[in-house]
Simulated scan of single mutants.
Amino acid sequence: MKIATAQCTCVPAAVSANVEHMAALIAEARMREAESVVFPEPALTGYELAAVLRAGGVAGVVNCAAATDEDRPAIETPVFGADGEMITTYRKQYLFEHERDVFVAGQVEAVQGWGRLRPRAVRPRR
């Protein structure tokens, strides 16, 4: 199987424009006889999550891997307001067994809320 990888520059928060560009790259890959195309993770929205949220006027919560001072990343949940500004972030503390070899546990017990929401850390049942 021939697989194409797409390295593309995305326009922040311009999903329609990015889809058009991706469609052109797919057509090019097909002309080169590729059977599959792999795009980078932010291909639709660009790297500017804050701009996407600002344009939509809603708050957003995103889960991602985040760099740490250790040799492994943490599972992090940044919380953005409707204005695109980061309100707070939380690093997962209680890792499941299959996560422990890959990720570092967070150390902060709770996160601040926004609006009427007051998130709190909850230990998983064992």
Rank of each mutant, 00 (worst) to 15 (best):
V52L: 15
T45F: 08
L25T: 03
S36C: 15
A50C: 10
A24E: 12
L53W: 05
G46H: 06
E41P: 08
E33K: 14
A27N: 08
M31H: 14
A24M: 12
A27L: 02
A34N: 11
A51G: 06
A23M: 05
R32C: 08
F39D: 00
S36K: 12
A24G: 07
M22T: 08
E33G: 10
R54A: 11
M31D: 14
A43P: 12
V38T: 09
L44F: 13
L25F: 06
L49C: 06
I26C: 13
R54D: 01
L25D: 02
L53C: 04
I26P: 00
L25N: 00
V37Y: 10
I26W: 00
L44R: 10
E33M: 06
F39S: 01
M31N: 13
T45E: 04
L53S: 07
A27C: 02
A27V: 01
L44N: 01
E33P: 00
P40D: 03
L25S: 05
V52W: 09
E41A: 14
H21K: 15
L49G: 09
R30Y: 06
G46T: 01
M22V: 08
A51Y: 04
T45M: 13
V37F: 04
H21Y: 02
A29F: 10
E33H: 13
V38L: 11
A23E: 06
E35K: 09
R32Q: 15
A29E: 04
R54W: 00
L44G: 07
R32T: 11
A24T: 06
L25C: 03
V38M: 10
Y47I: 11
P40K: 01
R30M: 06
T45A: 13
A43K: 04
T45P: 02
S36W: 15
A29Q: 09
M31F: 12
P42D: 14
R30K: 14
S36T: 13
R54Q: 15
Y47H: 08
M22I: 04
G46V: 03
A50E: 13
I26A: 11
E33T: 12
V37A: 14
G46M: 03
E33A: 10
A24C: 05
R54M: 03
M22P: 00
T45G: 10
M31Y: 10
V52D: 07
A24V: 05
E28I: 03
E48L: 05
V52R: 09
A24N: 10
E48Y: 09
E35M: 04
A29V: 05
I26G: 02
E48F: 01
M22C: 15
A29M: 07
A34G: 07
L49Q: 01
A34L: 12
L49W: 08
P40A: 04
A43S: 13
A43W: 14
